[in-house]
Design a protein around this nucleic acid. Structure first.
Ligand SMILES: [Zn+2]
Ligand SMILES: [Zn+2]
Ligand SMILES: [Zn+2]
Ligand SMILES: [Zn+2]
Lengths: 127, 127
DNA sequence: TACATAATGTTATTTTATAACAATAAACTT
DNA sequence: AAGTTTATTGTTATAAAATAACATTATGTA
């Protein structure tokens, strides 16, 4: 369990508290009072947090969420459902999907490292 | 089979000829001789082509590829393998994955519309 | 033709991300 | 502890990706 540096902790905290995916510049404007003043400081922290598996990037939204699973300690795989109505993003417990997809990768001859899966549609509430 | 407008055809042709995913501004610089001069013209064509299912966006790369499957005429689902060594991107024939994932979406109570799946690792050649 | 709709052209701006380099801080080595 | 290396931080400037806003032209259709 790697310990976070100052900036990493600040950035992680704000993502972790948020109920929705946060964009890099939203994060920036929310941490300026804490002394983080420029984009590279945010992006560096984000990069490291992703490496550690503490957060994930939602590629289709250029936004970042805290990992909601205990089992993706290293960011090998992530799967999200994204509601197109309320914009809610939920990380899917991905152990089953992971198994299925890594066996699939085998089949097509690929040496699998990680994947990113984004589901779009309507969530329980909105459908 | 929808017919393409002038700009859509120009943009599609260059993506379709390419052996690798193309970025919007790469496309732009390659079609300026054909009279497409500004980013919005490219992005509009890209948007429509995506709607039609003729191309897909590789979200993790901000790049665009022609659809390699005959069966995703409407861009409901797309799955790609991306080699981290040679950067090769291949669209996976996704009928099986589609079936699996849409049943999974059912299970978590989501009204599924589409998904985007990106596999990272090493391709046959590079592994 | 007259009207509506879709596509295009154009300029400017916004949003997202990184390059490059200087300054500190933390971690090792002797 | 002093010296050396490595990681992290700070800062300025810039690059890359995408869109807003509005004017113009083409296309369909009543
Ligand atoms: Zn996770
Ligand atoms: Zn919803
Ligand atoms: Zn396709
Ligand atoms: Zn390869």
């Amino acid at each position: 369990m790697q310990t976070l540096t100052r900036n990493q902790q600040i950035v992680f905290d704000i993502i972790n508290k948020s109920s929705e995916p946060l964009k890099a510049y939203t994060i920036l404007s929310n941490v300026q009072k804490k002394g983080i003043k420029a984009p590279p400081q945010v992006y560096r922290a984000l990069d490291k947090l992703i490496e550690m598996g503490k957060i994930h990037k939602i590629e289709s939204k250029n936004a970042f969420v805290a990992c909601q699973n205990s089992n993706c300690k290293v960011s090998k795989a992530a799967a999200f459902s994204i509601c197109e109505s309320c914009e809610e993003v939920t990380e899917i417990d991905n152990s089953k999907i992971s198994k299925y997809l890594s066996s699939f990768a085998d089949k097509i001859g690929m040496k699998y490292k990680k994947y990113n899966l984004e589901f779009f549609g309507l969530c329980k509430k909105c459908k």
